[in-house]
Design a binder for these strands. Structure first.
Lengths: 243, 243
DNA sequence: ACAAAAGTGTTTTGGGTACACCCATGT
DNA sequence: ACATGGGTGTACCCAAAACACTTTTGT
């Protein structure tokens, strides 16, 4: 316990785990039972944990992801440090609940966001208390977790427009329509199919495969894969902040 | 001392303070005298400090900036958490020097970068040990500070292409040529004057003033200012990660 | 008068956008 | 045969890029 224990008492990692399935983006939250007055209420929070003395924060995030989803090797990226000294005290009952679990009453947290394709994951590996909430229907969360979630969603949208993160939400092999639908649902918009395809067909790192969908009751679509190496080689930065 | 003191022993902020002047980008480093064997060597590091119990990390960064440059109200932005458990032990002599100053041997640090226009600042306010180093001539720094500096420079270039941070490096009122030269020196390139001006003249938040340079031995240039409010109102995000 | 930087227009090329029909498959 | 999504081309407009001369000031 204390500063020289195995756990760093003043630093945690909270994970905003985004999952995509059936044209909608979801976020993993978990339930806690909180005593309030004489009853017990169920509250939701983001999965998180303290940083251990001998690990990097990426290790911490990987540990949380493994615990919550059973999956290793998931994309995760730190995006912001939340350091409001009163972040655990937004509501008194939250702080009362968490206080006995803390080594230090001041805890800063590093926000990570993480991307998984829900078709890939076996939901039986999810822990009991976890639930996928639609990002448009996120309820009140404990502490400052609504701030963390909102910042993660903004950052995800920002990053998706500048980096090829979308492939973390798609299966290994995907159709162009599947890809288009991910953008459309996350940005809440629609794109013209022909223009969309013309644009992405210019991306040399999108590899058309000699494989097609099977078992669909319409013309089967060609499958594509993403070649990260080709992307890295062709990457350029451009001077263009917006008019 | 320890976990419940006024200082959070396991968390610090390090600042990469960029300064611009005379077409070159500089970074503020400070000197420490380190005993090595029987002599004393001078080593350079980034300015940094621990986070206090009752402040946000932005407060910490502002405190460091005030100490080092004498200036308040400087732009500063967190960009990454450096969490390698051995980050202070890259060289044994660095760790020996810093160890007596630490409350905890494990220190994670939040990297901030900061932007100042060197024409604005009174260098007499700089502390004795500080020096502006040209970003192309940064020498070996203590700990993982070269990693922090390199990450900051990459992030600065990235952010400059997507956000109007350039105005933090310019005086309140500036000419279009001054603005162009900041880009050219940071990105190490040149732009065509007419195309550059056509492009930025389309930015509604760049306000032409009825003021001109004085005392220059050539046609005096018109001065412009940046209107942040107009920028915020016109901001859009675009779907365009690169081909 | 000269030196120094300010300021300005045209042409060509490529990308963005709007828009409608035929194709391959399962039932 | 029909329902379902897959897949394709053209015309217009605007943005990017290449490129050279005149203007205004101080000395």
């Amino acid at each position: 316990m204390g500063c020289n224990g195995e756990v760093l008492g003043c630093l945690s990692v909270d994970c905003v785990i985004f999952g995509y399935e059936d044209s909608s983006l979801k976020v993993l939250v978990r339930k806690e039972s909180i005593p309030l007055d004489d009853s017990i209420v169920e509250e939701w929070k983001l999965p998180g944990n303290h940083v251990l003395r001998h690990e990097t924060i990426d290790d911490t995030a990987a540990r949380i992801l493994k615990e919550q989803t059973g999956l290793g090797n998931i994309f995760a990226k730190q995006f912001f440090v939340f350091s409001d000294p009163d972040r655990l005290r937004r509501r008194p009952q939250d702080f009362e609940w968490v206080k006995p679990r803390l080594q230090d009453e001041r805890v800063l947290t590093v926000g990570f966001y993480s991307l998984v394709n829900l078709k890939d994951i076996d939901n039986s590996m999810l822990i009991e208390e976890a639930r996928w909430m639609n990002v448009n229907e996120v309820t009140e969360l404990m502490f400052d977790h609504n701030d963390i979630f909102n910042a993660a969603l903004l950052k995800l949208r920002y990053d998706l427009t500048h980096e090829p993160l979308i492939f973390e939400l798609l299966p290994e092999k995907f159709t162009l329509t599947q890809m288009q639908k991910v953008y459309e649902s996350i940005f809440d918009t629609v794109y013209d199919k022909r223009n969309y395809r013309r644009k992405i067909n210019k991306m040399p790192y999108l590899i058309p495969l000699d494989e097609y969908q099977i078992g669909v009751s319409h013309k089967p679509a060609r499958l594509f894969s993403f070649d990260k190496k080709i992307y890295e080689e062709n990457r350029i930065e451009r001077f263009d902040f917006h008019v």
